[in-house]
Write a protein that binds this DNA or RNA. Structure first.
Lengths: 210, 210
DNA sequence: TAGATTGTTAATCGATTAACAATC
DNA sequence: TAGATTGTTAATCGATTAACAATC
């Protein structure tokens, strides 16, 4: 019943969205309860690991019964902040930025796009998903008016570090970084990297060695 | 000097592209040699880990000297198959598929886009980066004419499993999967997932608990 | 009640770090 | 030669798995 007294390990954290996904799916399919054993078969994990993972956050199950899908789903929502929500800006409205802005799934996960920024004059003033693209110089103004939690950085590699530092000063709490570069920022800011070229190279390695 | 006799662990594999990146950078900056110590400081790892990791693939260093940047870079290129190259198709030419097709970086890593497929009639016949978008029904024909190594799946979740199974039959060796779903495929096919919504949710968790 | 299944403690496994002889 | 730094073996740390008493 220990509610996050010990620091939850990165390995566990990385599995949480996956639990969330499977629970959403089960709920969708009208499944009311599930045991760690049954879930482990679906997810290709051990039942033991599932119980260990969940016990980091509380005792959500019941002996002889298993877990109530809906209530575990709701717990996971809370743990991941889906219900809380995150006010988000997208910096860089190129192909990738646009793809993300158009992706409704993120909103369903609690990430609400409040602003989009670019330097391309042909983009500024147009809107994606109801959000008008503004010039990057407006970020400062915008972030002092609005409280923004998350910045999604889809800008060219060369300017990523500079922009990251700028938005950190504006009080942003987390950065979702799509540049193939590791940011070094003060620890009050969380960075989550999506290194796409790293990912595809792992695929390549595994193909060669499969 | 053991050349991949023991299976290289996933933890090591995931770090390889990062080594590649840093080595490319060092080379770019004209650095000729680097010690595990110096590299560890740049990469925020331990020197010990770097030496352990590299020793999975061979003895690339020299006592008292360190590693020759260019030759280690070239080794890494080989290990990751960058020099070898991978013939690639993109299935799904929506925002994300287009973003990837336009991203020159993947070509620099050895991933050459040979075909792009979609079902949207308004896209078919147009081209991205010199590659004409074809109807998805053409995948079979195309893949029997051309040998394709990698398929990048940027299609809606609902049809991902179906398409994955289809292309597996066409002899594809690896799938880069962008759908928030885990594919279960025969083990002769390698799958690398980019679960974007999983990634942003990890960011959210860390923001809440930072 | 009997069977099922939890949460947790202990055992195992694997990955990271430390130490050091070998040697450039 | 002396200093630096490797590759590797051993020690430590952490994550996963197994086992089981508690209990629904």
């Amino acid at each position: 019943m220990a509610l996050q007294n010990k620091k939850v390990s990165d390995a566990v954290i990385k599995r949480l969205p996956r639990y969330f996904r499977y629970l959403a799916d089960l709920k969708e399919n009208g499944v009311l309860r599930i045991s760690s054993k049954a879930l482990s078969e679906k997810m290709n994990l051990t039942a033991s690991q599932i119980r260990q993972d969940l016990s980091c956050f509380g005792g959500f199950g019941q002996q002889g019964y298993g877990y109530n899908v809906e209530s575990l789903y709701n717990e996971m929502k809370k743990i991941l902040g889906v219900d809380r929500g995150f006010r988000t800006i997208i910096v860089g409205a190129g192909n990738l930025g646009q793809a993300i802005a158009n992706h409704s799934k993120f909103e369903a996960r609690g990430y609400f796009v409040k602003g989009i920024f670019d330097i391309d004059q042909s983009l500024i003033g147009t809107s994606i998903n109801g959000v008008i693209i503004q010039h990057m110089d407006e970020i400062d103004n915008f972030c002092s008016r609005e409280t923004i939690d998350v910045a999604i950085l889809t800008v060219p590699r060369e300017i990523t570090a500079e922009i990251a530092e700028k938005i950190v000063k504006l009080g942003i709490k987390g950065i979702w970084n799509f540049s193939a570069m590791d940011l070094r920022l003060p620890e009050e800011v969380v960075v989550e990297n999506v290194h796409l070229s790293d990912s595809i190279m792992v695929l390549g390695y595994k193909i060669i060695n499969n």
